[in-house]
């Protein structure tokens, strides 16, 4: 086998279906022995949120942002057919029937496979997220760290 290949995914979207696609590709790439990084920015940061409420000192706007956005992958909406929350309920039912892994399960599997989960520090600040609100064992970085991975990347995706 040749040297280790790299897969880099930017998860910009906070939609359940798009996060699912990103995490399926990431887990597949890890099975291909790629070094995999998922760089979460803007709405994609919601996938990394802990599902419970986390006490944090915040200003009014940051608190509002925190309330309006989904706490964790399981609470995210669909990019199509969301129907005020009916869509996610329906798709999760179908997923169960087809034995498809849920996004929280895929995230857990990603961590087990040693996939590098990165949160973009700049957008965390914009949206008012503090590190305690996000999953443990993730790293924090900016555009330079992403580019350092991406310039040697074999698969680069923006989702």
């Amino acid at each position: 086998m040749s040297e280790t290949k790299k897969t880099n995914i930017i998860l910009f979207s906070g939609d359940y279906d798009k996060a699912m696609a990103a995490y399926i590709i990431a887990n597949g790439a890890a099975a291909y022995d790629h070094e995999v990084t998922i760089f979460h920015t803007f709405w994609g940061l919601n996938a990394l949120r802990k599902d419970g409420k986390v006490e944090a000192q915040k200003g009014f706007l940051e608190k509002m942002f925190g309330k309006m956005m989904p706490r964790g992958a399981d609470k995210m909406g669909l990019s199509k057919m969301n129907m005020a929350g009916m869509g996610p309920k329906m798709i999760k039912k179908v997923m169960k029937k087809h034995n498809t892994s849920s996004v929280p399960d895929l995230i857990e599997m990603a961590q087990m496979q040693g996939i590098n989960l990165v949160a973009c520090q700049m957008t965390m600040d914009l949206l008012g997220f503090q590190r305690a609100e996000l999953l443990d064992d993730i790293t924090y970085a900016g555009v330079a760290a992403y580019l350092a991975d991406a310039e040697n990347g074999n698969v680069n995706l923006f989702i």
């Binding site: 399926i24 887990n27 597949g28 099975a31 087809h98 498809t100 892994s101 496979q113």
Partner: peptide
């Protein structure tokens, strides 16, 4: 019974 990507993983 398992769906993609589980068989591969």
């Amino acid at each position: 019974g398992l769906a993609c990507p589980m068989p591969l993983v």
